[in-house]
Amino acid sequence: MPRDDGNAIKFLGGVLISMRKSIGVDIGGTKMNFAILNEDGSLENKFRISTPAFSPRDEFMNILKANIRDMLGRYDVCGIGVGVPGLQDVERGVAIYAGNCPALKGTPVVEILQEEFKIPVYIDNDVRVATLGEFWYGAGKDANTIICVTLGTGIGSGIIIRGKLWRGSNCAAGEIGHVKLKEDWLSSTLDMDGTLEAISSGPAIATAYHKMVEGEKLEGRVDTSLKASEVAERAHDGDKTALEIFQTAGYYLGIAIAGYVNLINPELVIIGGGLASVGDLLLKPAFEAYQRYALDVSKQVCRITMAQLGNDAGVVGAGAMVFHYLDGDKFWL
């Protein structure tokens, strides 16, 4: 394939303009998404691979570099944006900790990639970059104060306040998945039992179902080879245990969102992530709990909607982050 020289041409008001390109990478607990992003939000060369989450660090980074190198062989880009799970030191470009991706613990992602490719590299939390994607190009582009909750291998959230990303005092804001909601339940990868992530994430739903079917106590760490999508199929077939698990997961998800809305008072809540695709099995009980526990004054101004960009939100936000950094746009508080 011929190399793209990065000078994508587009008409704007009858004038030919050149569009920059960036690489967006979204690292999740089970999948890594890659794409070339154009400034208008369109994607090229989009692909996905399995995340080597439990591999040694060097092996993980070599896989990441190999896929980026392949893209750089065909496109000229102005930088690389990477969404990284868990906690990061954004200023130093270091992945501090990710329970669902231990291979990255303590990894200086920016330093390694910049040394390898000699172009600007920026990282942020994977859910925050998905939030930016939805804010700049998706469901949140007409809103000003937003909460974006992603449901998948883990549960996280991003916050936009008055048009700016809120990272928190040390880049740890939005960790809704680790809010304690229930006693005597499964524990998450951080060994905290009864948290939202230990109740309502994909692996939590699958683990709870497996244990209930086997007559085991709902205790111990979330861990099963069963997938939430399989449990969803059984629920659609009328499996009472599967239906009960989704009802519980949705109920506590709704409580968590209601508490979030009561605290932040947003105008929009965006729900995304792979697990959201199960639809009403999870979201109907969540919305019912939200309606019950969110304050009326907050509900009056808050709309709940599904993410528009789907699985592309992370790569779009990560890639767009590059343009904003290079343009000197301080898009965070």
Score class of each variant (00 low, 15 high):
residue 68 I to E: 03
residue 124 D to R: 02
residue 156 G to H: 03
residue 99 G to L: 10
residue 118 K to R: 14
residue 89 D to F: 10
residue 71 M to D: 08
residue 74 R to V: 06
residue 90 V to W: 03
residue 161 I to C: 14
residue 103 A to T: 00
residue 154 G to M: 03
residue 140 G to T: 05
residue 71 M to H: 08
residue 146 I to V: 15
residue 92 R to G: 12
residue 137 Y to K: 15
residue 104 L to V: 07
residue 84 V to C: 07
residue 76 D to F: 10
residue 87 L to C: 06
residue 140 G to H: 09
residue 143 A to C: 12
residue 111 E to C: 11
residue 74 R to C: 10
residue 110 V to R: 05
residue 91 E to S: 15
residue 146 I to P: 02
residue 133 G to W: 01
residue 95 A to G: 02
residue 116 E to L: 07
residue 142 D to K: 15
residue 82 V to S: 09
residue 79 G to Q: 05
residue 132 L to S: 05
residue 89 D to R: 02
residue 142 D to V: 11
residue 94 V to M: 09
residue 156 G to S: 09
residue 86 G to N: 04
residue 76 D to P: 02
residue 131 T to H: 08
residue 120 P to S: 14
residue 115 E to H: 15
residue 137 Y to M: 14
residue 140 G to N: 06
residue 67 N to W: 08
residue 114 Q to L: 08
residue 75 Y to N: 06
residue 119 I to G: 12
residue 74 R to E: 14
residue 159 I to T: 13
residue 87 L to S: 10
residue 103 A to H: 03
residue 69 R to D: 15
residue 149 V to S: 14
residue 134 E to H: 12
residue 75 Y to D: 02
residue 117 F to P: 00
residue 99 G to M: 08
residue 159 I to W: 13
residue 108 P to Y: 10
residue 154 G to R: 00
residue 128 R to I: 11
residue 100 N to M: 06
residue 80 I to W: 01
residue 70 D to H: 11
residue 79 G to W: 04
residue 70 D to V: 09
residue 162 R to K: 15
residue 136 W to T: 04
residue 159 I to S: 10
residue 162 R to E: 15
residue 72 L to D: 02
residue 78 C to W: 07
residue 146 I to G: 11
residue 112 I to H: 07
residue 88 Q to K: 08
residue 98 A to H: 02
residue 73 G to H: 03
residue 74 R to P: 01
residue 119 I to N: 09
residue 138 G to M: 08
residue 118 K to S: 14
residue 124 D to E: 14
residue 66 A to L: 13
residue 118 K to Y: 11
residue 113 L to V: 08
residue 153 T to C: 11
residue 116 E to S: 12
residue 158 G to N: 04
residue 133 G to M: 04
residue 125 N to S: 11
residue 81 G to K: 01
residue 161 I to P: 03
residue 107 T to F: 12
residue 157 S to N: 13
residue 112 I to V: 15
residue 113 L to H: 09
residue 118 K to G: 07
residue 81 G to F: 04
residue 126 D to P: 00
residue 143 A to F: 10
residue 90 V to I: 14
residue 142 D to L: 12
residue 87 L to G: 03
residue 80 I to F: 07
residue 82 V to C: 13
residue 98 A to T: 00
residue 152 G to P: 01
residue 109 V to T: 07
residue 113 L to F: 12
residue 69 R to F: 13
residue 68 I to W: 07
residue 109 V to P: 01
residue 66 A to W: 08
residue 116 E to A: 14
residue 89 D to C: 08
residue 151 L to N: 06
residue 109 V to E: 02
residue 73 G to L: 06
residue 68 I to D: 04
residue 154 G to W: 01
residue 139 A to I: 03
residue 104 L to Y: 07
residue 92 R to T: 05
residue 99 G to P: 03
residue 123 I to L: 09
residue 76 D to V: 14
residue 133 G to Q: 01
